[in-house]
Design a protein around this nucleic acid. Structure first.
Lengths: 253, 253
DNA sequence: AGAATAGTGTCTATGAGACAGTATGAG
DNA sequence: CTCATACTGTCTCATAGACACTATTCT
C-alpha cells in the first residue's frame, strides 16, 4: 500500500474528551455531563466533542472547556488571570469504544481552581462536579452519593482514572498544584490541595518548610488572610518555577 | 449540533508514528526511514503508517514496528523474550502538519536493545539508526554525519524530541533503562545506557551501589562475563520492580 | 482562657556524592 | 608487569520525617 493513497485510509472521527479536575470541600472532583442521547443515555460522561476540520487538538479542547465551563485555559506558561492548566493526556482508540462508529478521542487534562461556577453554557442539571471517588466507584455503587454517577459512559472511567493518576504524579515534581488554587493562596490552602489530590494527611510544619524553601515555587504577595481561621497566614502567588527539584514526596500507602 | 450526527464530523486520517530508541556505540539512536515519495521526498522521517479500520492504536504501532524492524513489542509487563518496550507517547494533530490532508498521528515510543538488525522488511538504504543528536541538529547541519539526516520530515523532529525527553525522564523513576539492554547484562552496561541517554558521566561506584541496592531492580543470574574487559562482572536480569523509589537522580547541568 | 491555624527550631535517619582502596581478568 | 573494569567501604552533606515550641487570631 503506497503511503498517502488518498483512497486507501479508513475514515475516523476525532474527538477531544476533557478530564477537568478541581478541589472542592477537601475532595478531588471532576466535571461530568449527563448524556441526553443514546448510547448511554442518562449516564454521566466526560465533557467533549468533535474536533473541527481546521482546528488544532489543543484548540478544540480549549473551546470545549470554554463552552462547558466558561473557563479559559492557558495550555502552557504561567496563569495570567484565573485561567486553568490544560495539557494533553492520552489518546483512546479502541475500535469498539463507541458502538456506532470509529472514534479516536484525544483526552486532555484540565486543572482548575474551585471558584468558577460549574457551568456556563448548558443547563444546570446536565453538568456537575462529582468526587472522583464516586465517579470511579465499582459499578455496585458502594459510594453513598445523592445521585448515582458511576459507571461513566464509554471508556470514560478509564480516561478519568488515567487523568487522576497523571495529576497525582505531576504535583510531585511540578508546581502544578497551584493550578488548583486561586491567584493568591496560603500555604495551608496549598497543603489541603495536596491532601485532597493524594488522599493523605501531610504534616503542616514539614510541608510549610518544604514549599517555602523551594526557590521559585511560591512568591509572597505581602498580604495576609484569616479566611481559614487562626493566626493570619501569608498570601502567596505561584512563582516562576515549573519543576520542583527535589520533588514533593507522596507518602507511601 | 447534536452529538454523533454521522454526517456532522469532518473525516480524519489517523496514523501511528514510532520513536524507536536504542543505545549503540555509547550514543542514543533513533530509527529513521527515508521517504520515497513527496512531500519531503528523500528526507528522513520516523517510521509509521495508517491505523487500519478495525485495529487498536497500540496494535497498529506494534504492527508497524514489526514490519520495519522485526521487533516484537510487549506494550506492558516484563520482557518475556527479546521484546521491546512500547508505550503511547502523544498525539499530533496540527491541521497543517501534512500538506495534503488532515492527519492525526498517535506517536508511540519504543525502547529496544541494540542487537536486532536495523531492518527486516524494507531495503537497506531506506532505514537506518541515526544518533538523535544528528536527527535533531539545527537545520544548518552542525553535526558531522556521513550522511545528512536533519531536518526530519513533517513535525517529526518535535515528535522525536518529545520521545527522547520522555525516555530521559522515565529512566529516572522506572526500571525502563533495562529495556535498552539484552536479557542478561552487567551493572556497567546498564550504567552506559544511563550515560548515553542522559549524555552525562556517572560515578561507577555510586551507580553500582544504587542499582544493586534497590530491591527488585536487578536479579543476579549467577553468571559472569568479561565482554567489557577487566574483572569479570556479574550478570543480571531485570527484576519485577517497575518503579524506582527513591529514583535515580539525573545530574544537573 | 481555649481552640484553631501559622510558623520556627531541633533531632535523627536515610541517601547521594566524593573518593580511597581492593579484586580479578586481558595483554 | 600494566591497564581496565568490578566491587566494597568510608566520610560528609542535604533533606525528609517526627515533633516540641512559639505566635496570632477568633469565640
Amino acid at each position: 500500500m503506497p503511503p498517502y493513497d488518498l483512497s486507501a485510509f479508513p475514515p475516523f472521527a476525532v474527538t477531544v474528551d476533557l478530564v477537568v479536575l478541581t478541589v472542592r470541600r477537601h475532595a478531588l472532583c471532576a466535571l461530568a455531563v449527563r448524556r441526553g442521547e443514546p448510547p448511554y443515555q442518562g449516564r454521566w460522561a466526560l465533557p467533549g466533542g468533535f474536533v473541527r476540520a481546521d482546528e488544532d487538538l489543543e484548540a478544540a479542547a480549549a473551546r470545549e472547556l470554554a463552552e462547558e465551563t466558561g473557563l479559559h485555559a492557558h495550555p502552557t506558561g504561567p496563569p495570567p488571570a484565573n485561567g486553568a492548566h490544560l495539557e494533553q493526556l492520552a489518546t483512546y482508540g479502541d475500535p469498539k469504544r463507541d458502538p456506532r462508529m470509529r472514534v479516536v478521542s484525544v483526552a486532555h487534562l484540565v486543572l482548575a481552581p474551585d471558584l468558577p461556577a460549574p457551568r456556563a453554557g448548558g443547563d444546570a442539571r446536565s453538568v456537575r462536579w462529582a468526587p472522583v471517588d464516586a465517579l470511579l466507584a465499582p459499578e455496585t455503587g458502594l459510594v453513598r452519593d445523592e445521585e448515582q454517577t458511576a459507571p461513566l459512559a464509554f471508556d470514560h472511567a478509564r480516561i478519568l482514572a488515567d487523568g487522576v493518576e497523571r495529576a497525582r504524579s505531576k504535583i510531585e515534581y511540578s508546581s502544578l498544584a497551584t493550578a488548583f488554587c486561586p491567584q493568591e493562596f496560603t500555604v495551608g490552602e496549598l497543603r489541603r490541595v495536596y491532601e485532597a489530590v493524594w488522599g493523605v494527611a501531610l504534616d503542616p510544619r514539614n510541608f510549610h518548610r518544604k514549599v517555602t524553601g523551594t526557590p521559585g515555587f511560591l512568591v509572597p504577595t505581602g498580604g495576609t488572610t484569616t479566611r481559614q481561621g487562626g493566626r493570619p497566614a501569608q498570601l502567596f502567588r505561584a512563582g516562576g518555577a515549573t519543576v520542583l527539584n527535589p520533588p514533593m514526596l507522596r507518602p507511601e500507602i
